[in-house]
Design a protein around this nucleic acid. Structure first.
Lengths: 155, 155
DNA sequence: TATTGTTATACTCTATAACTATA
DNA sequence: TATAGTTATAGAGTATAACAATA
């Protein structure tokens, strides 16, 4: 039963965290997928749309739409690929870079603020607990998928 | 710096948890908002659409769409409100009830499986840590909103 | 006059399929 | 022939505004 308590605490926290994130993005006129794309460019440098589609796990078609929106708001731009005339390189504008730097800083501040008032040992234990739970979840998912595949092979 | 680690562990876990949830819902032909609506009916009993819109935090118009979809898949139905002829009461069908019972059981199983291998003290500490972090986050949000309002009042 | 739900319209996320230009 | 990106189309989440029926 205490297992359910951990999961419920986790889901409750997740929900608050997400609502906060959406508010912050909204304030800046951003959406989650658009920000994710900006983040990939910020940490990985200019990329083709196919590369972006792999990084975000969405279709190339959807990347077209996302880049269109980021271009319209002046956060990213397409430029011709230097060697492949079919492709484009998407890169952050100066405004896009500044924005991502600000968001990165906010992320660090939030991380620090969330554990204020906890002693280092507790923080350490919390991180380890979370990683343990994530490991367990990934194992469960893998086992689940294996079972699924075997069922399909039998049928 | 270790604050950021907690936040990052948390976000990583959140992402895996969410991906898993979406896969499970997809397997059953459900979506997150529709499931949320079913959950509200399961735990709160029949409700008018206005009540549902308050519970889910979406517009009454959107509830119309969600209930249409759940009606089409036989999970919920509209019935006339006994005393208010403007309103309808949305209720789960038998299939909807059975589905929610199954999902509730799966939730409990998952909660137990996630902490398998951790000793009770660690589980206890983890729950307390998560609740502490959520409390901190809610304080931060409240303070942020207070500051926002003051800024608006000044302007 | 206020409330319940719906029609009309629009934006965003997301997908598949068909197509163009280039490799 | 395969790959990069776009046009066309569609379903789902979400919103606002205008409107009907009823309170």
């Amino acid at each position: 039963m205490s297992g359910t308590h951990v999961l419920d605490s986790l889901l409750a926290l997740t929900q608050v965290l997400q609502a906060d994130q959406e508010r912050e993005l909204d304030r800046r006129g951003l959406t989650v997928p658009r920000t994710h794309l900006l983040w990939v460019l910020f940490h990985g440098g200019p990329a083709t749309q196919v590369q972006l589609s792999e990084a975000l796990g969405v279709t190339p078609r959807h990347i077209t739409t996302l880049v269109d929106a980021l271009d319209a708001t002046g956060l990213a731009r397409r430029e011709p690929h230097p060697t492949d005339r079919r492709a484009v390189l998407v890169h952050l504008t100066e405004r896009g870079t500044t924005l991502m730097q600000a968001m990165d800083a906010e992320h660090d501040e939030l991380g620090a603020a969330l554990v204020a008032g906890l002693d280092p040992d507790t923080v350490e234990a919390l991180t380890r607990g979370l990683d343990h739970v994530r490991g367990r979840l990934e194992e469960l998912i893998a086992a689940h998928e294996r079972a699924q595949r075997e069922r399909e092979d039998t049928a």
